[in-house]
Design a protein around this nucleic acid. Sequence first.
DNA 1: TATGAATGAGCTTTCATTCAT
DNA 2: TATGAATGAAAGCTCATTCAT
Lengths: 222, 222, 222, 222
Amino acid sequence: MAENTTEFSKRERILLAAEEVFSRQGYVQAKVDDIMTLADVGKGTIYNYFGNKEQLFYHLIEERHHKLLDKLHAVDKKKSFLEKFSEMLYIWVNFLEDNIVLWQVLVFEMTGSNKGYFAFRNGDKWEFHTSWGDLPTKEEQDILVRYYSILNEEVKIFEELLCEGQKEKVIDKDINIHPCSRDLFFGVMMRVFHLRKFNKTITQKEYAELVVKNFLYGIAAK
Amino acid sequence: MAENTTEFSKRERILLAAEEVFSRQGYVQAKVDDIMTLADVGKGTIYNYFGNKEQLFYHLIEERHHKLLDKLHAVDKKKSFLEKFSEMLYIWVNFLEDNIVLWQVLVFEMTGSNKGYFAFRNGDKWEFHTSWGDLPTKEEQDILVRYYSILNEEVKIFEELLCEGQKEKVIDKDINIHPCSRDLFFGVMMRVFHLRKFNKTITQKEYAELVVKNFLYGIAAK
Amino acid sequence: MAENTTEFSKRERILLAAEEVFSRQGYVQAKVDDIMTLADVGKGTIYNYFGNKEQLFYHLIEERHHKLLDKLHAVDKKKSFLEKFSEMLYIWVNFLEDNIVLWQVLVFEMTGSNKGYFAFRNGDKWEFHTSWGDLPTKEEQDILVRYYSILNEEVKIFEELLCEGQKEKVIDKDINIHPCSRDLFFGVMMRVFHLRKFNKTITQKEYAELVVKNFLYGIAAK
Amino acid sequence: MAENTTEFSKRERILLAAEEVFSRQGYVQAKVDDIMTLADVGKGTIYNYFGNKEQLFYHLIEERHHKLLDKLHAVDKKKSFLEKFSEMLYIWVNFLEDNIVLWQVLVFEMTGSNKGYFAFRNGDKWEFHTSWGDLPTKEEQDILVRYYSILNEEVKIFEELLCEGQKEKVIDKDINIHPCSRDLFFGVMMRVFHLRKFNKTITQKEYAELVVKNFLYGIAAK
DNA sequence: TATGAATGAGCTTTCATTCAT
DNA sequence: TATGAATGAAAGCTCATTCAT
C-alpha cells in the first residue's frame, strides 16, 4: 500500500494508511504513528493536512460515504420498488464488505453509542440523550453531530425507499417505517459481519436477495 | 450510587461503579480511577477483588450474563414454540434495555470486532480470523475467547429455539438457522438501541411481539 | 516448609519463609505477601513480630550471623595458625553455601553498596562516604550501620586470624592485613558463588584447602 | 550535569543522568523520573531513544563495556605475560574505579545473582540454574543473557591471558584456569571497592602490581 | 510545504503498611 | 495475640500533539 509512494499523493497515502490502521485497531487504539509510518510521510504532514486524529478519521469516513451515496443515487429511479430494493441492498452489502470495520467503528465509537449517547433530529437540530446522566460537552456534540449526519444521510435513503414501498403497497400500511429502516440498515451491518464467517459460499448478490426476502416475508413456513 | 456506602458491600459498590463507568466511557476509555472514586474505595481494593481492569469488566458481564441465562432457562419448556419465542424475546429485550451499553461494549470492544477480529468454534476450539492480517496474540485470544463464549452461550439458546421452530414446521425448512439466530440476537440488540429513541410509547412486551412478527412474517403487505 | 505448621512457632515459620523469599527475590523485589503466604500466617503477624520488612530481614540475617560466629569462635584457639585458617575457612565456605544469596543481598543491597555508599569505623563511630554526592539520611545511616556491624564482626575474626599468622611469620611482614582480610572474606564469597557452577566435584573441605593454598602461595609455578 | 544543556546532545545527557541515577539507586530503585529530571529532558524522550528502562541501562553498560574492551585489546600482544598481566590489570582497576557502582549493579542485579540465578555457557547456549527453584522466564532469560554475555567477554580476556601464562609456565600447570580467571576478575572488583575505602594512598598502578603479586605468589612469607 | 524530535499528562498496576475486628 | 481487607503513593510506560527547522 505504502510502497508505491509515487503513484499516490501524500493526502491519498495518508487516507489509505488511515483506513488500514483504523480497521486494524479501531479508533481509540489506532496510533497516529502507525498511520504515519504506513503512509511513509512525516507526522507533521498528517496534522498539516487533517488537523488532528479525529478529523483524519472524519475525512476518511466522509470520502467513503460520498462514494456510497453516489452509487446509491445512481440507481435508476424508474425501476420498481422491489428491483430498487434489491439493487440498493446489494450496493450497501457490497460497500460494507469493503468497509465493515470502519463502519462498525463509526456506528459504535464515533457516534458515542459506546458511551450510552444517542441523538436524533428534532426539526433541524440534533438532540442528545444518554443512558447515564452526563451529556456530551458542546465540543463533543459538534463532533458527534458530524458522524450522526453521515449515518442519517445513509439511512434516509433506505427510509425513503421503504416509504415508496409502502406507497406502492408492497409494504404493509401499518408498519412504522422510521425504526424499520434503522432495523434494516443496522441489521444488514450485523448480518454482513456474520455472513463473512458462516456463509462464504453465497455471492453478495444472492445475499442481498436473501435479506430482501427475509425482511419482507420473514422466515416462517409458507 | 456512592452515597449509600453502608447499603452495599465494597465488592458490590465496585461492580455498580464499574457498570456506570464502563457504560459512560466504553472499556478502553474507562478509567480505573473513576471507578475507584465512584465506588468510594481505595484503588488497591479494586485490584484485590478483581485482579485487573479486564477481569473487573469480565466479572461484571459474567454476573449479568448468568442472571440472563437463569431467566431464559426458567421459561416453561412445555409451552409452544411461538409462546416460548415471544417470552424469551421479551426477556432478551428486557435485559438489553437494562444493559444495552454494556452489551454493546461486550459485542464491539471485547470481542475485538472493532479491530476486525472474528472467531467461531471449530469443534471444541475457537478459531480466530481477521479482516486485516494481524491475528490477536495468544494472551489476547484467551481473553477474547471468554467474551465469545458468553455471547455464544446466549446465542445458542436462541439457535436451539429456532431449530425447535423448524422441527415444528413454523419456520421454513430451507432456512439456515445458524446465521439466522445471530441475525435475531444481534438484530434485536440494534433494535433495542433504536427503540429507545424512536418508539418509547410501545411496551417491551408489545415490542417483543412485534419483533417476533416481523422476524417470522416480514413487513410485506399480506 | 510451611506445611508442618505445628512443628515451628509462628516466629520461626516467618523467618524460614523470609529466608526462602529473600533468597528467591533479593530484598527490594521480595514481597511481604509472599512471605506471609509461605509462612501461613496473617500479614499483621509479621508486623507484630518484626515491625517492618527491613527489620524482618535484619533479624533473619542476625540469627544466621550469630550461628556463624558461634561456630567460628568454637575453633580451638590452641591449634596452629594454618590449622585454624583451614578450619575457619571451611566454616565460612560451608556457611556461604547455605546462605549465599542472603549474604550477597546483605553485602550488596543492605550495605548500600548498590547505591555507591561505603562506610568504615573511625574509632567508635561509622563514617559514610558515597561515590555520588548524596549521603544517606540519618535514618538510612542507622539502618546501614546495623548491616555494616554484622559484616565487620565477621571480617574481624579473619583479620585477627591473619594478624596472628603474621605474628607467627607465616604471612609476610610487609602485608597490610586490613584490606587483605577483606579480600579474603569477600573473595571467598565470590568464589563460592562461582564454585557452585564450575567445580561441583570438589568437596567443601578440599575447596577450603585450595583457597588457603592460593591465598598464601598464589598460583605461580614453583 | 544538567546545567550544560548545550554542551551535550540529549542522548548524551540521558546517558550521563542514567549513570548518576543508577549509581545512586541501583537498577530497581532508580526512577526514570529522576533520570528525566536530571537530564532535563521530557520523559518520552528517554523512551524514544532507549525503548525502556532496562534497555537504557543496557546501552549505558554496553557503551562502557566496549570502551574497556578497546583498551584491553590495545595492549601490545608481543609483550611478555607478566607485562601484559600488569598492564591489563591496571586497565581493569582503572576502569572499575570509574564505574564501580555500575559494574556492581551489573554483576549483582542484572545477572540475577541477587535472586540466586546463575548461568553458564554450554556450547553456544546459556543454561540457567537457580539456588531456589524458580527459573527465570524466557523473557527474563533473554535479558539476563545480554548481561552475562558482556561479563563473559570481559572475563574471557583474562582467561586467555592466564592460559598464556600457563603455557609460558609462569602459572602452575595444575591450576584450573576457568574458575581462577573468575576469581581474579570478580576478586579485583571486590578489592577495588574496598581499596577506595582503606588504601587511598597507593596509586592504581601500584595497586595493580600488588594484585598481580598476591595473585601469583600469595601473601605467605618467602 | 514537510518534517520528526520532543513533550508530559495520563494511564494501569504494585505493594508496604495500617488498623478495626 | 492474630488477622487480612483496605489503602494510596509511586512506578513504568504511551501517544496525540506541537513547533523549530
